[in-house]
Nucleic acid binder design. Structure first.
Lengths: 240, 240
DNA sequence: GAGCTAGAGTGGTACTTACCAGTAGGCCCG
DNA sequence: CGGGCCTACTGGTAAGTACCACTCTAGCTC
Protein backbone atom coordinates (compact mmCIF):
# COMPACT_ATOMS: atom_id res chain seq x y z
CA UNK A 1 0.00 0.00 0.00
CA UNK A 2 1.20 3.49 -0.73
CA UNK A 3 2.16 6.03 1.84
CA UNK A 4 -1.26 7.32 2.76
CA UNK A 5 -4.61 5.79 3.41
CA UNK A 6 -6.81 5.43 0.42
CA UNK A 7 -9.45 7.54 2.09
CA UNK A 8 -6.95 10.36 2.58
CA UNK A 9 -5.85 10.25 -1.01
CA UNK A 10 -9.46 10.47 -2.11
CA UNK A 11 -10.01 13.37 0.27
CA UNK A 12 -6.97 15.17 -1.10
CA UNK A 13 -8.21 14.61 -4.62
CA UNK A 14 -11.53 16.17 -3.69
CA UNK A 15 -9.78 19.08 -2.03
CA UNK A 16 -7.96 19.82 -5.26
CA UNK A 17 -11.14 19.29 -7.18
CA UNK A 18 -13.16 21.83 -5.22
CA UNK A 19 -10.28 24.28 -4.83
CA UNK A 20 -11.35 26.47 -7.73
CA UNK A 21 -15.06 25.91 -7.40
CA UNK A 22 -17.49 28.59 -6.35
CA UNK A 23 -19.57 28.08 -3.20
CA UNK A 24 -22.62 25.98 -4.02
CA UNK A 25 -21.28 24.25 -7.12
CA UNK A 26 -22.11 20.57 -7.46
CA UNK A 27 -19.53 17.82 -7.47
CA UNK A 28 -20.05 14.59 -9.46
CA UNK A 29 -22.30 11.94 -7.97
CA UNK A 30 -20.83 9.47 -5.52
CA UNK A 31 -21.18 6.57 -7.92
CA UNK A 32 -19.43 8.45 -10.72
CA UNK A 33 -16.58 9.45 -8.45
CA UNK A 34 -16.17 5.84 -7.36
CA UNK A 35 -15.73 4.71 -10.93
CA UNK A 36 -13.38 7.54 -11.76
CA UNK A 37 -11.18 7.06 -8.69
CA UNK A 38 -11.44 3.30 -8.58
CA UNK A 39 -12.60 3.13 -4.98
CA UNK A 40 -15.65 1.70 -3.28
CA UNK A 41 -18.55 3.84 -2.24
CA UNK A 42 -17.99 3.47 1.53
CA UNK A 43 -14.41 4.67 1.05
CA UNK A 44 -15.52 7.61 -1.02
CA UNK A 45 -18.25 8.43 1.45
CA UNK A 46 -15.78 8.36 4.33
CA UNK A 47 -13.67 10.93 2.50
CA UNK A 48 -16.70 13.09 1.76
CA UNK A 49 -17.79 12.77 5.39
CA UNK A 50 -14.55 14.38 6.47
CA UNK A 51 -15.10 17.30 4.16
CA UNK A 52 -18.74 17.64 5.19
CA UNK A 53 -17.77 17.68 8.85
CA UNK A 54 -15.33 20.47 8.20
CA UNK A 55 -17.86 22.42 6.20
CA UNK A 56 -16.24 22.26 2.78
CA UNK A 57 -19.04 20.17 1.28
CA UNK A 58 -22.77 20.01 1.86
CA UNK A 59 -24.89 16.99 1.02
CA UNK A 60 -28.47 17.23 -0.17
CA UNK A 61 -30.45 14.04 -0.20
CA UNK A 62 -31.80 13.29 -3.65
CA UNK A 63 -30.05 16.27 -5.25
CA UNK A 64 -26.33 15.94 -4.93
CA UNK A 65 -23.30 17.15 -3.05
CA UNK A 66 -22.19 20.76 -3.26
CA UNK A 67 -19.29 22.91 -2.17
CA UNK A 68 -19.95 24.63 1.13
CA UNK A 69 -20.66 28.29 1.74
CA UNK A 70 -17.34 28.98 3.46
CA UNK A 71 -13.83 27.88 2.77
CA UNK A 72 -12.45 26.83 6.11
CA UNK A 73 -14.26 25.75 9.20
CA UNK A 74 -12.30 24.75 12.22
CA UNK A 75 -14.06 22.23 14.34
CA UNK A 76 -12.82 22.34 17.88
CA UNK A 77 -14.70 19.53 19.51
CA UNK A 78 -15.48 16.48 17.50
CA UNK A 79 -12.37 14.43 18.15
CA UNK A 80 -11.30 12.11 20.95
CA UNK A 81 -10.93 14.13 24.11
CA UNK A 82 -11.23 17.24 22.05
CA UNK A 83 -7.92 17.28 20.23
CA UNK A 84 -7.55 19.63 17.31
CA UNK A 85 -9.34 18.64 14.21
CA UNK A 86 -6.98 20.40 11.89
CA UNK A 87 -9.01 21.34 8.86
CA UNK A 88 -8.63 18.73 6.17
CA UNK A 89 -5.29 18.52 4.52
CA UNK A 90 -2.38 19.77 6.54
CA UNK A 91 -0.51 19.68 3.24
CA UNK A 92 -2.54 22.48 1.73
CA UNK A 93 -1.37 24.88 4.42
CA UNK A 94 1.76 26.87 3.82
CA UNK A 95 3.36 29.58 5.89
CA UNK A 96 5.38 32.65 5.10
CA UNK A 97 7.82 33.37 7.89
CA UNK A 98 7.73 37.05 8.77
CA UNK A 99 9.95 36.99 11.82
CA UNK A 100 12.19 34.33 13.34
CA UNK A 101 14.69 34.75 16.12
CA UNK A 102 15.50 34.69 19.82
CA UNK A 103 14.48 37.52 22.09
CA UNK A 104 14.69 37.93 25.86
CA UNK A 105 11.46 36.85 27.47
CA UNK A 106 10.74 40.11 29.25
CA UNK A 107 8.35 40.43 32.19
CA UNK A 108 5.00 39.56 30.58
CA UNK A 109 6.10 36.71 28.38
CA UNK A 110 8.20 35.28 31.22
CA UNK A 111 5.03 35.00 33.25
CA UNK A 112 3.15 33.31 30.44
CA UNK A 113 5.88 30.77 29.80
CA UNK A 114 6.94 30.37 33.43
CA UNK A 115 10.52 31.38 32.65
CA UNK A 116 13.03 33.85 33.98
CA UNK A 117 12.63 37.28 32.33
CA UNK A 118 16.20 36.96 31.03
CA UNK A 119 15.68 33.52 29.46
CA UNK A 120 15.91 33.42 25.67
CA UNK A 121 12.62 32.90 23.88
CA UNK A 122 12.24 32.00 20.23
CA UNK A 123 9.72 34.24 18.56
CA UNK A 124 8.23 33.23 15.22
CA UNK A 125 5.67 35.24 13.33
CA UNK A 126 4.19 33.52 10.34
CA UNK A 127 1.46 34.19 7.82
CA UNK A 128 -0.63 31.11 7.21
CA UNK A 129 -1.75 30.64 3.65
CA UNK A 130 -4.15 28.30 1.87
CA UNK A 131 -4.26 28.32 -1.91
CA UNK A 132 -2.29 31.56 -2.08
CA UNK A 133 -4.84 33.22 0.12
CA UNK A 134 -3.72 34.58 3.50
CA UNK A 135 -5.81 33.18 6.31
CA UNK A 136 -4.18 34.00 9.61
CA UNK A 137 -1.20 35.52 11.37
CA UNK A 138 0.41 33.45 14.10
CA UNK A 139 2.80 34.81 16.69
CA UNK A 140 4.46 31.85 18.38
CA UNK A 141 6.68 32.17 21.42
CA UNK A 142 8.46 29.27 23.06
CA UNK A 143 11.50 28.60 25.27
CA UNK A 144 14.50 28.65 22.97
CA UNK A 145 16.13 25.79 24.87
CA UNK A 146 13.31 23.52 23.76
CA UNK A 147 13.97 23.79 20.03
CA UNK A 148 17.70 24.25 19.61
CA UNK A 149 18.55 23.95 15.92
CA UNK A 150 15.12 24.87 14.58
CA UNK A 151 15.35 26.86 11.34
CA UNK A 152 12.71 28.99 9.61
CA UNK A 153 12.18 26.48 6.80
CA UNK A 154 10.98 23.94 9.38
CA UNK A 155 7.97 26.10 10.00
CA UNK A 156 6.88 26.71 6.45
CA UNK A 157 4.78 23.59 6.08
CA UNK A 158 3.72 20.45 7.87
CA UNK A 159 2.60 20.06 11.44
CA UNK A 160 4.63 21.98 13.99
CA UNK A 161 3.49 19.68 16.79
CA UNK A 162 4.64 16.62 14.90
CA UNK A 163 8.01 18.30 14.46
CA UNK A 164 8.19 19.08 18.16
CA UNK A 165 7.48 15.47 18.99
CA UNK A 166 9.63 13.74 16.43
CA UNK A 167 12.69 15.96 16.39
CA UNK A 168 12.73 17.58 19.78
CA UNK A 169 11.01 14.94 21.88
CA UNK A 170 8.38 17.37 23.12
CA UNK A 171 5.16 15.53 23.90
CA UNK A 172 2.44 18.12 23.31
CA UNK A 173 -0.59 17.09 25.30
CA UNK A 174 -3.02 19.87 26.10
CA UNK A 175 -3.79 23.50 25.50
CA UNK A 176 -6.02 26.19 26.89
CA UNK A 177 -7.31 28.51 24.26
CA UNK A 178 -9.32 31.67 24.46
CA UNK A 179 -10.94 33.37 21.56
CA UNK A 180 -12.49 36.75 21.13
CA UNK A 181 -13.87 38.96 18.43
CA UNK A 182 -11.65 41.78 17.29
CA UNK A 183 -10.82 43.77 14.16
CA UNK A 184 -7.63 44.02 12.14
CA UNK A 185 -5.15 46.82 12.69
CA UNK A 186 -3.27 48.41 9.82
CA UNK A 187 -0.45 45.87 9.62
CA UNK A 188 -2.72 42.86 9.99
CA UNK A 189 -5.09 44.18 7.36
CA UNK A 190 -2.27 44.58 4.86
CA UNK A 191 -0.92 41.08 5.48
CA UNK A 192 -4.33 39.41 5.33
CA UNK A 193 -5.49 41.33 2.26
CA UNK A 194 -8.55 42.78 3.95
CA UNK A 195 -9.60 46.33 4.79
CA UNK A 196 -8.53 47.85 8.05
CA UNK A 197 -10.94 47.25 10.97
CA UNK A 198 -12.14 44.07 9.31
CA UNK A 199 -13.74 41.43 11.60
CA UNK A 200 -11.23 38.90 12.90
CA UNK A 201 -10.89 36.21 15.54
CA UNK A 202 -8.17 36.81 18.10
CA UNK A 203 -6.91 33.60 19.66
CA UNK A 204 -4.50 33.03 22.53
CA UNK A 205 -3.25 29.56 23.25
CA UNK A 206 -1.05 28.16 25.97
CA UNK A 207 0.19 24.68 25.22
CA UNK A 208 1.60 22.14 27.68
CA UNK A 209 3.47 18.85 27.44
CA UNK A 210 2.72 15.61 29.26
CA UNK A 211 4.46 16.89 32.42
CA UNK A 212 2.47 20.09 32.47
CA UNK A 213 5.39 22.27 31.37
CA UNK A 214 4.46 25.17 29.13
CA UNK A 215 5.65 24.55 25.60
CA UNK A 216 4.42 27.60 23.75
CA UNK A 217 2.33 30.70 23.97
CA UNK A 218 0.62 31.72 20.75
CA UNK A 219 -1.38 34.78 19.73
CA UNK A 220 -3.13 34.52 16.40
CA UNK A 221 -5.40 36.60 14.25
CA UNK A 222 -7.76 34.76 11.89
CA UNK A 223 -9.68 36.38 9.10
CA UNK A 224 -13.29 36.64 10.23
CA UNK A 225 -14.71 35.82 6.83
CA UNK A 226 -12.68 32.64 6.50
CA UNK A 227 -12.98 31.10 9.91
CA UNK A 228 -15.73 29.80 12.00
CA UNK A 229 -15.42 27.68 15.07
CA UNK A 230 -17.78 24.79 15.48
CA UNK A 231 -18.40 23.00 18.72
CA UNK A 232 -20.70 20.33 19.88
CA UNK A 233 -22.27 20.72 23.31
CA UNK A 234 -23.77 17.97 25.40
CA UNK A 235 -26.04 18.60 28.30
CA UNK A 236 -26.48 16.32 31.22
CA UNK A 237 -29.78 17.06 32.87
CA UNK A 238 -29.12 20.38 34.53
CA UNK A 239 -27.38 23.46 33.20
CA UNK A 240 -29.08 26.07 31.16
CA UNK B 1 -39.84 -0.90 14.33
CA UNK B 2 -38.93 1.89 16.67
CA UNK B 3 -38.47 5.45 15.60
CA UNK B 4 -34.82 5.87 14.84
CA UNK B 5 -32.08 4.45 12.71
CA UNK B 6 -30.43 1.27 13.76
CA UNK B 7 -27.19 3.12 14.29
CA UNK B 8 -28.92 5.49 16.71
CA UNK B 9 -30.44 2.68 18.67
CA UNK B 10 -27.03 1.08 18.99
CA UNK B 11 -25.58 4.40 20.10
CA UNK B 12 -28.30 4.82 22.71
CA UNK B 13 -27.65 1.31 23.97
CA UNK B 14 -23.98 2.16 24.35
CA UNK B 15 -24.85 5.40 26.12
CA UNK B 16 -26.84 3.46 28.69
CA UNK B 17 -24.11 0.88 28.91
CA UNK B 18 -21.37 3.37 29.75
CA UNK B 19 -23.57 5.55 31.93
CA UNK B 20 -22.41 4.02 35.20
CA UNK B 21 -18.88 3.17 34.11
CA UNK B 22 -15.80 4.85 35.50
CA UNK B 23 -13.54 6.79 33.14
CA UNK B 24 -11.15 4.41 31.41
CA UNK B 25 -13.17 1.23 31.76
CA UNK B 26 -13.21 -1.07 28.77
CA UNK B 27 -16.32 -1.92 26.78
CA UNK B 28 -16.74 -5.31 25.07
CA UNK B 29 -14.96 -5.86 21.78
CA UNK B 30 -16.63 -4.75 18.58
CA UNK B 31 -17.19 -8.31 17.40
CA UNK B 32 -18.80 -9.32 20.68
CA UNK B 33 -21.09 -6.29 20.64
CA UNK B 34 -22.13 -7.09 17.09
CA UNK B 35 -23.24 -10.56 18.11
CA UNK B 36 -24.99 -9.32 21.21
CA UNK B 37 -26.87 -6.53 19.44
CA UNK B 38 -27.43 -8.37 16.18
CA UNK B 39 -25.91 -5.68 13.97
CA UNK B 40 -23.09 -5.65 11.50
CA UNK B 41 -19.68 -4.32 12.37
CA UNK B 42 -19.88 -1.25 10.12
CA UNK B 43 -23.12 -0.24 11.83
CA UNK B 44 -21.66 -0.76 15.27
CA UNK B 45 -18.54 1.15 14.33
CA UNK B 46 -20.61 4.05 13.02
CA UNK B 47 -22.32 4.24 16.41
CA UNK B 48 -19.01 4.07 18.26
CA UNK B 49 -17.60 6.73 15.92
CA UNK B 50 -20.28 9.13 17.11
CA UNK B 51 -19.38 8.56 20.73
CA UNK B 52 -15.67 8.80 20.03
CA UNK B 53 -16.19 12.09 18.27
CA UNK B 54 -18.01 13.50 21.24
CA UNK B 55 -15.34 12.25 23.62
CA UNK B 56 -17.35 9.63 25.49
CA UNK B 57 -15.27 6.73 24.18
CA UNK B 58 -11.63 6.33 23.26
CA UNK B 59 -10.32 3.68 20.92
CA UNK B 60 -6.91 2.05 21.31
CA UNK B 61 -5.70 0.02 18.40
CA UNK B 62 -4.94 -3.53 19.42
CA UNK B 63 -6.18 -3.04 22.98
CA UNK B 64 -9.82 -2.16 23.00
CA UNK B 65 -12.29 0.66 23.40
CA UNK B 66 -12.62 2.52 26.67
CA UNK B 67 -14.83 5.11 28.27
CA UNK B 68 -13.46 8.61 27.87
CA UNK B 69 -11.60 10.65 30.46
CA UNK B 70 -14.50 13.01 31.17
CA UNK B 71 -18.04 12.23 32.08
CA UNK B 72 -19.99 14.88 30.26
CA UNK B 73 -17.99 16.90 27.84
CA UNK B 74 -18.83 20.51 27.49
CA UNK B 75 -16.40 21.27 24.74
CA UNK B 76 -16.73 24.98 24.95
CA UNK B 77 -17.96 27.39 27.52
CA UNK B 78 -18.49 31.06 27.02
CA UNK B 79 -17.85 33.29 29.97
CA UNK B 80 -18.06 37.03 30.31
CA UNK B 81 -14.51 38.31 30.20
CA UNK B 82 -13.19 39.39 33.51
CA UNK B 83 -14.43 36.37 35.35
CA UNK B 84 -12.58 33.09 35.08
CA UNK B 85 -14.42 29.90 34.28
CA UNK B 86 -17.37 30.95 36.38
CA UNK B 87 -20.40 29.51 34.69
CA UNK B 88 -22.73 32.37 33.91
CA UNK B 89 -24.57 33.00 37.15
CA UNK B 90 -28.04 32.51 35.77
CA UNK B 91 -29.62 34.67 38.44
CA UNK B 92 -27.81 37.84 37.49
CA UNK B 93 -29.02 37.68 33.90
CA UNK B 94 -32.09 39.58 32.85
CA UNK B 95 -33.63 39.96 29.46
CA UNK B 96 -35.59 42.67 27.74
CA UNK B 97 -37.98 41.16 25.24
CA UNK B 98 -37.81 43.06 21.96
CA UNK B 99 -40.01 40.83 19.88
CA UNK B 100 -42.29 37.92 20.69
CA UNK B 101 -44.72 36.18 18.41
CA UNK B 102 -45.49 33.48 15.90
CA UNK B 103 -44.36 33.78 12.29
CA UNK B 104 -44.53 31.32 9.40
CA UNK B 105 -41.27 29.40 9.16
CA UNK B 106 -40.44 30.35 5.60
CA UNK B 107 -38.04 28.43 3.41
CA UNK B 108 -34.74 28.98 5.23
CA UNK B 109 -35.95 28.60 8.77
CA UNK B 110 -38.01 25.58 7.78
CA UNK B 111 -34.82 23.89 6.67
CA UNK B 112 -33.02 24.74 9.89
CA UNK B 113 -35.84 23.48 12.08
CA UNK B 114 -36.86 20.58 9.84
CA UNK B 115 -40.40 21.90 9.57
CA UNK B 116 -42.83 22.65 6.80
CA UNK B 117 -42.36 26.20 5.49
CA UNK B 118 -45.94 26.97 6.50
CA UNK B 119 -45.53 25.71 10.07
CA UNK B 120 -45.83 28.36 12.76
CA UNK B 121 -42.59 29.29 14.46
CA UNK B 122 -42.27 31.29 17.62
CA UNK B 123 -39.74 34.04 17.24
CA UNK B 124 -38.30 35.75 20.28
CA UNK B 125 -35.74 38.50 20.20
CA UNK B 126 -34.31 39.47 23.53
CA UNK B 127 -31.59 41.73 24.83
CA UNK B 128 -29.57 40.04 27.53
CA UNK B 129 -28.48 42.28 30.34
CA UNK B 130 -26.13 41.91 33.32
CA UNK B 131 -25.98 44.67 35.93
CA UNK B 132 -27.88 47.06 33.68
CA UNK B 133 -25.30 46.59 30.97
CA UNK B 134 -26.41 45.07 27.65
CA UNK B 135 -24.31 42.04 26.75
CA UNK B 136 -25.92 40.24 23.84
CA UNK B 137 -28.87 40.05 21.49
CA UNK B 138 -30.51 36.65 21.09
CA UNK B 139 -32.85 35.74 18.26
CA UNK B 140 -34.54 32.48 19.20
CA UNK B 141 -36.72 30.53 16.84
CA UNK B 142 -38.53 27.33 17.73
CA UNK B 143 -41.55 25.28 16.63
CA UNK B 144 -44.57 27.01 18.09
CA UNK B 145 -46.23 23.67 18.79
CA UNK B 146 -43.47 22.89 21.27
CA UNK B 147 -44.19 25.78 23.63
CA UNK B 148 -47.91 26.43 23.49
CA UNK B 149 -48.82 28.89 26.20
CA UNK B 150 -45.41 30.49 26.56
CA UNK B 151 -45.63 34.20 27.35
CA UNK B 152 -43.00 36.94 27.09
CA UNK B 153 -42.56 37.23 30.85
CA UNK B 154 -41.38 33.61 30.92
CA UNK B 155 -38.31 34.62 29.01
CA UNK B 156 -37.24 37.61 31.05
CA UNK B 157 -35.23 35.69 33.59
CA UNK B 158 -34.26 32.22 34.66
CA UNK B 159 -33.09 29.35 32.52
CA UNK B 160 -35.01 28.85 29.33
CA UNK B 161 -33.86 25.24 29.07
CA UNK B 162 -35.11 24.47 32.56
CA UNK B 163 -38.45 25.99 31.58
CA UNK B 164 -38.56 23.84 28.45
CA UNK B 165 -37.88 20.76 30.51
CA UNK B 166 -40.13 21.38 33.47
CA UNK B 167 -43.13 22.99 31.84
CA UNK B 168 -43.10 21.65 28.29
CA UNK B 169 -41.38 18.32 28.80
CA UNK B 170 -38.68 19.07 26.27
CA UNK B 171 -35.48 17.24 27.15
CA UNK B 172 -32.71 19.43 25.76
CA UNK B 173 -29.68 17.26 25.20
CA UNK B 174 -27.19 18.57 22.68
CA UNK B 175 -26.36 21.50 20.49
CA UNK B 176 -24.10 22.32 17.60
CA UNK B 177 -22.77 25.81 17.77
CA UNK B 178 -20.74 27.83 15.32
CA UNK B 179 -19.10 31.08 16.10
CA UNK B 180 -17.54 33.74 13.98
CA UNK B 181 -16.14 37.21 14.28
CA UNK B 182 -18.33 40.01 13.02
CA UNK B 183 -19.13 43.63 13.73
CA UNK B 184 -22.31 45.30 14.92
CA UNK B 185 -24.73 46.88 12.49
CA UNK B 186 -26.59 50.05 13.32
CA UNK B 187 -29.46 48.46 15.24
CA UNK B 188 -27.25 46.11 17.18
CA UNK B 189 -24.85 48.90 18.08
CA UNK B 190 -27.68 51.02 19.48
CA UNK B 191 -29.08 48.16 21.54
CA UNK B 192 -25.71 47.08 22.90
CA UNK B 193 -24.52 50.63 23.67
CA UNK B 194 -21.44 50.36 21.49
CA UNK B 195 -20.34 52.22 18.36
CA UNK B 196 -21.38 50.91 14.99
CA UNK B 197 -18.98 48.36 13.44
CA UNK B 198 -17.82 47.34 16.89
CA UNK B 199 -16.24 43.86 17.21
CA UNK B 200 -18.77 41.18 18.11
CA UNK B 201 -19.14 37.42 18.24
CA UNK B 202 -21.84 35.99 16.01
CA UNK B 203 -23.12 32.66 17.26
CA UNK B 204 -25.53 30.22 15.65
CA UNK B 205 -26.81 27.32 17.68
CA UNK B 206 -29.02 24.40 16.75
CA UNK B 207 -30.33 22.56 19.77
CA UNK B 208 -31.75 19.05 19.89
CA UNK B 209 -33.70 16.98 22.38
CA UNK B 210 -33.01 13.43 23.48
CA UNK B 211 -34.67 12.02 20.35
CA UNK B 212 -32.62 14.18 18.04
CA UNK B 213 -35.49 16.49 17.17
CA UNK B 214 -34.54 20.09 16.62
CA UNK B 215 -35.78 22.24 19.48
CA UNK B 216 -34.52 25.67 18.60
CA UNK B 217 -32.36 27.63 16.24
CA UNK B 218 -30.67 30.65 17.74
CA UNK B 219 -28.64 33.47 16.28
CA UNK B 220 -26.91 35.69 18.78
CA UNK B 221 -24.61 38.67 18.80
CA UNK B 222 -22.29 39.08 21.79
CA UNK B 223 -20.34 42.21 22.56
CA UNK B 224 -16.74 41.54 21.62
CA UNK B 225 -15.35 43.43 24.61
CA UNK B 226 -17.42 41.48 27.11
CA UNK B 227 -17.09 37.94 25.85
CA UNK B 228 -14.36 35.51 25.32
CA UNK B 229 -14.63 31.83 24.68
CA UNK B 230 -12.32 29.47 26.49
CA UNK B 231 -11.75 25.91 25.49
CA UNK B 232 -9.45 23.24 26.73
CA UNK B 233 -7.91 20.96 24.15
CA UNK B 234 -6.44 17.56 24.78
CA UNK B 235 -4.21 15.76 22.35
CA UNK B 236 -3.95 12.05 21.85
CA UNK B 237 -0.87 10.30 23.06
CA UNK B 238 1.41 10.12 20.09
CA UNK B 239 1.73 7.02 17.94
CA UNK B 240 4.97 7.46 16.07
C1' DG C 1 15.57 -17.26 34.57
C1' DA C 2 15.70 -13.91 30.73
C1' DG C 3 14.61 -13.11 26.15
C1' DC C 4 12.35 -13.97 22.02
C1' DT C 5 8.48 -15.63 19.23
C1' DA C 6 4.02 -17.20 17.62
C1' DG C 7 -0.71 -16.76 18.09
C1' DA C 8 -4.99 -14.95 19.56
C1' DG C 9 -7.54 -10.97 20.13
C1' DT C 10 -8.23 -6.11 19.26
C1' DG C 11 -9.36 -2.14 16.33
C1' DG C 12 -8.45 -0.15 11.14
C1' DT C 13 -9.36 -0.12 6.27
C1' DA C 14 -11.58 -1.57 2.29
C1' DC C 15 -14.55 -3.99 -0.96
C1' DT C 16 -19.11 -5.74 -2.64
C1' DT C 17 -23.87 -5.95 -2.61
C1' DA C 18 -28.51 -4.62 -1.53
C1' DC C 19 -32.14 -1.84 -0.64
C1' DC C 20 -34.41 2.61 1.28
C1' DA C 21 -35.56 7.52 0.66
C1' DG C 22 -35.71 11.81 -1.18
C1' DT C 23 -35.67 14.83 -5.86
C1' DA C 24 -36.59 16.29 -10.46
C1' DG C 25 -38.25 15.88 -14.88
C1' DG C 26 -40.61 13.62 -18.50
C1' DC C 27 -44.64 11.02 -19.88
C1' DC C 28 -49.28 9.72 -19.84
C1' DC C 29 -54.00 10.48 -18.88
C1' DG C 30 -57.76 13.29 -18.01
C1' DC D 1 -53.26 22.06 -21.91
C1' DG D 2 -52.67 20.83 -16.97
C1' DG D 3 -51.98 17.79 -13.18
C1' DG D 4 -50.51 13.66 -11.24
C1' DC D 5 -47.72 9.67 -11.54
C1' DC D 6 -43.52 7.07 -12.79
C1' DT D 7 -38.90 6.61 -13.53
C1' DA D 8 -34.19 7.56 -13.34
C1' DC D 9 -31.35 9.80 -10.93
C1' DT D 10 -29.31 11.49 -6.18
C1' DG D 11 -27.60 10.45 -1.32
C1' DG D 12 -28.64 7.23 3.19
C1' DT D 13 -28.39 2.93 5.67
C1' DA D 14 -27.09 -1.68 6.25
C1' DA D 15 -25.10 -6.32 5.82
C1' DG D 16 -21.32 -9.40 5.14
C1' DT D 17 -16.59 -10.45 4.22
C1' DA D 18 -11.62 -10.09 3.87
C1' DC D 19 -7.43 -8.77 5.28
C1' DC D 20 -4.01 -5.50 7.70
C1' DA D 21 -1.75 -3.49 11.92
C1' DC D 22 -1.15 -3.32 16.59
C1' DT D 23 -0.98 -5.29 21.53
C1' DC D 24 -0.47 -8.56 24.82
C1' DT D 25 0.72 -12.90 26.59
C1' DA D 26 1.78 -17.68 27.01
C1' DG D 27 5.10 -20.78 25.88
C1' DC D 28 9.34 -21.97 23.90
C1' DT D 29 14.33 -21.48 23.44
C1' DC D 30 18.71 -20.56 25.00
Amino acid sequence: MRAGLKRDRVRDFLLDFIADKLPGEAIPSERDLCKELGVSRPTLRAAIDDLVRSGLLVREHGRGTFTGPHRVTQALSATPSGSFYVPPAEGTWLSRILEFGPVPAGPQLATRLRLSPAAPVLRVVRLRVVDDEPMAIERIQLPHALVDGLVPADMESGSFYRLLRERFGVDVRSAVQTMEATVTDETEARLLHVPQHFPALGVERTTRDADGRIVEFVRSIYRGDRYRVTSELHFDAESG
